[in-house]
């Protein structure tokens, strides 16, 4: 098995899966019906991407596991998602700030991956990048609207920013397996995407009257399976039915 590729696919697939599951928690109780529809549609795209990435991970592993098996029958410490995506939704400000950071990172990543030397990954990425660009634009509009909104919305966006900023390093972390894949031309080093990410954040924050924070003590470890307590709780809800009835089909 190509272990570095398997791990990289888990990192990407788990990011999409866990964030998609988090966004689904808004279904039926978002601030407006338009936002409700939007968050569910964002989740749908992410879960679709996760299905393709995890199915491919299962093929690379070669032990007969598919996306469902990997999603529902794996414990939290075997997940490779970033810490940011597993954080509780908080208020709408925090959800939208997280989505802005994640979609801006992920659209840059998938843009580069669409030129990957791995054909399957390139095809998945070419599809995903179009969706994630739309996500990034949608979230950026909300960051501006709320940041440059009322005193209340501005202060909530500042709090949201403070909450998420410490997870940015984790989002961009390149582990040894990822670095090996980068050398083989399969993935870009995430560090190379950081410059454009910073420029985009500064530009949107400028419009949103938000300040880019200085250095903070970063929290990392998600890519190695060292998660916050929040992941096991979100997985418990997601996995309970297939674990209770492992052979059930629709």
């Amino acid at each position: 098995m190509d272990k570095p590729l398997f791990n990289a696919l888990l990192q990407m697939g788990d990011d999409s899966l866990v964030l998609g599951q988090r966004l689904c928690e808004w279904s039926g109780k978002a601030p407006t019906i338009e936002v409700d529809l939007s968050l569910s549609n964002l989740a749908l795209d992410l879960i679709g991407q996760a299905t393709m990435l995890l199915d491919y991970a299962g093929q690379v592993e070669g032990e007969g596991r598919d996306a469902d098996r990997l999603a529902f029958h794996r414990d939290a410490e075997l997940f490779r998602n970033s810490l940011m995506v597993e954080q509780p939704n908080g208020d709408f400000a925090r959800t939208v700030m997280r989505h802005f950071f994640f979609a801006t990172y992920a659209s840059a990543l998938y843009e580069a991956l669409s030129k990957s030397s791995d054909e399957t990954l390139a095809a998945i990425a070419a599809k995903a990048v179009k969706e994630l660009r739309y996500h990034s634009e949608y979230a950026a509009e909300w960051v501006v609207r709320l940041g440059d909104g009322t005193e209340e919305s501005h202060s909530r966006m500042v709090k949201a920013l403070d909450w998420h900023w410490r997870f940015i390093d984790d989002l961009f972390e390149d582990d040894a397996d990822w670095a090996e894949l980068a050398e083989r031309g399969i993935v870009p080093l995430r560090a190379t995407l950081r410059g454009n990410f910073g420029k985009r954040v500064a530009q949107v924050f400028g419009e949103a009257t938000l300040e880019v924070p200085g250095e903070v003590w970063p929290l990392t470890g998600g890519r190695q399976g060292r998660h916050s307590e929040h992941l096991s709780l979100v997985l418990a809800e997601m996995q309970v039915l297939p674990r209770a009835h492992p052979a059930a089909t629709w």
Binding site: E34, L37, S38, N41, L42, L44, D45, Y134, Y138, E141
Partner: peptide, 13 residues
């Protein structure tokens, strides 16, 4: 545009 997302993934309102 009222909303960037509509009743299905392919549509906006």
């Amino acid at each position: 545009e009222v909303s960037r997302f509509g009743s299905t993934p392919c549509k906006a309102l």
